[in-house]
């Protein structure tokens, strides 16, 4: 880890003024010239930042902490019965929040199944959404890959068993955030505030950038902007949501595949709208539009759910070692749809 100076921002304005450097930009410097520049990066929980610092993948001159900014971790119910999630809310805080658990169970499930209890106690929502990919070539200083400003992707011809099956050219990372899968499915928006206090609000789906839009950044965060909140839209009472994930191991493992579905069903069980998003599938949370379309106007059963799952995977372009993800996603999508459409059994008080 390189030497850096340390600052503690006490207001969002202070933090934004300090945040001169996006982590992704700091990581594209040539290794020979890599050394503390004059940039300041901001740190929330810092789980990922510390990993990058320890591997010398990131050598900032200054690190500014967001931890002492008041109320940035608040989880607030909005007047329209949507919810506003402060960026500094921890994953553990999200997972345990009673109102969220009741209204947005896909979000609490995704947060509660991320990482380990210890990490969930420190990791923040904002940091989780902004963390860099886990691609093992990206994470090793020895490989100067496309995403670090180099000329090659090493995963496509190399070890790609955990890589993307959609949108995987020329870079095959998968987006590392599981929570993002659920949030994109819900149509969440993100608030970005600059040093003057101006708020830029955009849909989380648009906030994430696929390689064809930006090869080195996974999102549209700009210098001197602070991600302050995620807004969850109000949902009709008829909405059903499910998040499922599958790792090789039962806990503390990055998912091989994760799926979030949000359905709106008529009283007769007919699908009025569907949102299906796949995680660990593509460089950004991957919306399975063909599957969504396949469900509209349909009653959801084994057959329609299976057809939608197959439609979701029709465009997959697996690499040499990750073709197994295709049947795995199919199974998870079908199961998630059937679980979401299953009649709700009222719990006895």
């Amino acid at each position: 880890m390189n030497r850096f100076t340390w600052a503690t921002a006490r207001t969002i304005a202070e933090a934004a003024a300090a945040a001169s450097t996006i982590v992704a930009d700091a990581m594209t410097a040539l290794p020979e010239t890599a050394g503390p520049g004059d940039g300041t990066i901001v740190k929330a929980g810092g789980i990922d930042i510390l990993d990058l610092l320890k591997e010398n993948l990131l050598v900032p001159a200054r690190v500014a902490s967001l931890r002492d900014i008041p109320d940035l971790d608040a989880i607030v119910e909005e007047a329209d019965s949507g919810c506003r999630l402060g960026a500094m809310a921890t994953l553990a805080g999200l997972a345990a929040h009673p109102l969220l658990r009741q209204r947005y169970p896909a979000v609490t499930d995704a947060a509660g199944e991320s990482a380990s209890p210890q990490i969930r106690n420190l990791a923040t929502l904002g940091g989780n959404l902004l963390q860099r990919p886990r691609c093992w070539y990206f994470r090793a200083a020895e490989y100067r890959c496309l995403r670090k400003g180099g000329g090659n992707c090493f995963a496509i011809p190399g070890e790609n068993q955990y890589h993307a099956i959609f949108g995987n050219r020329p870079c095959a990372i998968v987006h590392p955030s599981t929570v993002a899968t659920a949030l994109v499915a819900l149509g969440a928006t993100v608030d970005l505030i600059d040093a003057e206090g101006a708020v830029r609000r955009l849909s989380l789906e648009d906030f994430f950038l696929p390689p064809e839009r930006d090869l080195q950044r996974e999102n549209d965060l700009r210098p001197h902007e602070i991600l302050t909140a995620i807004n969850l839209p109000p949902l009709p009472t008829s909405a059903r949501m499910v998040h499922l994930r599958q790792g090789e191991k039962d806990a503390f493992d990055w998912p091989l595949a994760d799926v979030a579905v949000l359905l709106d069903l008529s009283p007769e069980g007919i699908c009025r709208s569907a949102s299906i998003v796949l995680g660990a599938a593509a460089p950004v949370p991957h919306r399975a539009k063909p599957a969504e379309n396949a469900l509209l106007g349909k009653h959801i059963d084994e057959s329609t759910a299976g057809a939608a799952a197959r439609a979701a995977l029709a465009g997959a372009t697996p690499l040499a070692k990750n073709a197994y993800k295709t049947p795995l996603f199919e199974a998870l999508i079908r199961r998630a749809l059937l679980k979401a459409a299953a009649p709700i059994v009222k719990e006895r008080g």
Partner: peptide
């Protein structure tokens, strides 16, 4: 790197990995 939890301590009574915080 927070992957094994051997360094677990409590911060205000809550378990965290002490290698993942400054």
């Amino acid at each position: 790197r927070g992957a094994c939890s051997a360094c677990t301590v409590w911060l205000d009574g809550v378990p965290i990995c002490s290698c993942t915080v400054l």
